[in-house]
């Protein structure tokens, strides 16, 4: 086995020359051009950039919610469509997207019902993931009875319920206030450490990206492309006050530079 084959086997997502052009009434829009990226198992990769840089589009391509127009991409060594059919990933949207007519436990049961997990097994799984996101005791509440942060935690529990190894998160905490967001960031890191999942995380917050990630992908718009990939030198164990350390600030600075370089504010 050659080295490249070995990395391909261990890689969860591998994109080569990936591009996506949307046809719109105002002509074609290049949402992504020439993205080359390999995401390894157990990594926490953040995608950061201004709106229109294609970070969400890239996540949607991995999830087979968009089809690329150029290049190739594999998820767990399969095409995104095959990976989706094998339920290879859990997707967390910008909003919690809970079904209002289902209780929290029933919302988490939704993917299990669809995937045909037997009744006897469901209960245990629901209990386990609700405990993972600290929602034990809220099983029989309806979504409107929960705060925004709790709803988003429930949607993370729903994405974890069917044990996919890959978690795709599209600005999951974007609509929440700073205090709730800090708290959820910390919980997400703990969850990542406990479950050893691979996480792709879209954000437009620099501190969030630096705090969470093992690798930060900096992107830039018009056309959407990757401008920098930053390996984090922070340890895996990260208390909240690590954000005041010089190391953290140095990485944040590099991310900011990357964002400025790729984005002209004159236009």
């Amino acid at each position: 086995m050659t080295v490249t084959e070995a990395t391909a086997a261990a890689s969860v997502v591998q994109a080569k020359g990936l591009g996506l052009t949307f046809r719109t009434n105002d002509g074609p829009v290049q949402a992504l051009t020439d993205v080359n990226l390999t995401i390894g198992k157990g990594e926490f990769v953040s995608f950061i950039g201004p709106s229109g840089c294609g970070k969400t589009t890239f996540l949607r391509v991995i999830a087979d919610l968009e089809k690329p127009t150029e290049g190739t991409i594999s998820v767990n060594g399969l095409s995104p469509e095959q990976a989706r059919e094998k339920r290879a990933y859990g997707y967390v949207f910008q909003a919690a997207a809970l079904f209002p007519w289902r209780t929290i436990a029933k919302n988490i049961a939704l993917p299990l019902e669809i995937m045909g997990v037997p009744d006897t097994e469901r209960k245990g799984r629901i209990e386990r993931v609700m405990e993972l996101v600290n929602l034990t005791g809220f099983e029989n509440k309806y979504p409107w009875q929960l705060s925004g942060g709790m709803q988003q935690r429930a949607s993370i529990a729903r994405a974890l319920a069917f044990d996919a190894d890959l978690l795709l998160m599209d600005e999951p905490f974007g609509a929440l206030d700073e205090i709730v967001r800090d708290h959820l960031n910390k919980q997400l890191l703990e969850l990542w450490a406990r479950t050893n999942k691979t996480i792709c995380f879209v954000t437009h917050s620099i501190p969030e990206a630096v705090y969470l990630s093992t690798r930060i992908v900096v992107m830039s718009p018009r056309p959407g492309r990757v401008t920098d990939v930053i390996e984090s030198t922070l340890p895996r164990e990260r208390p909240l006050d690590i954000r005041e350390s010089p190391e953290f600030l140095a990485i944040a600075h590099r991310v900011r530079d990357g964002l400025h370089a790729g984005h002209s504010y004159e236009d």
């Binding site: 999830a63 087979d64 919610l65 989706r84 059919e85 339920r87 990933y89 859990g90 997707y91 949207f93 910008q94 909003a95 997207a97 079904f99 939704l110 993917p111 669809i114 995937m115």
Partner: peptide, 17 residues
């Protein structure tokens, strides 16, 4: 909403589901 339909799509839900 589109988001709910996308969610079902990520679960590979059948159209009857």
């Amino acid at each position: 909403e589109i988001m709910h339909l996308d969610l079902m799509h990520t679960y590979n839900a059948s159209s009857s589901q």
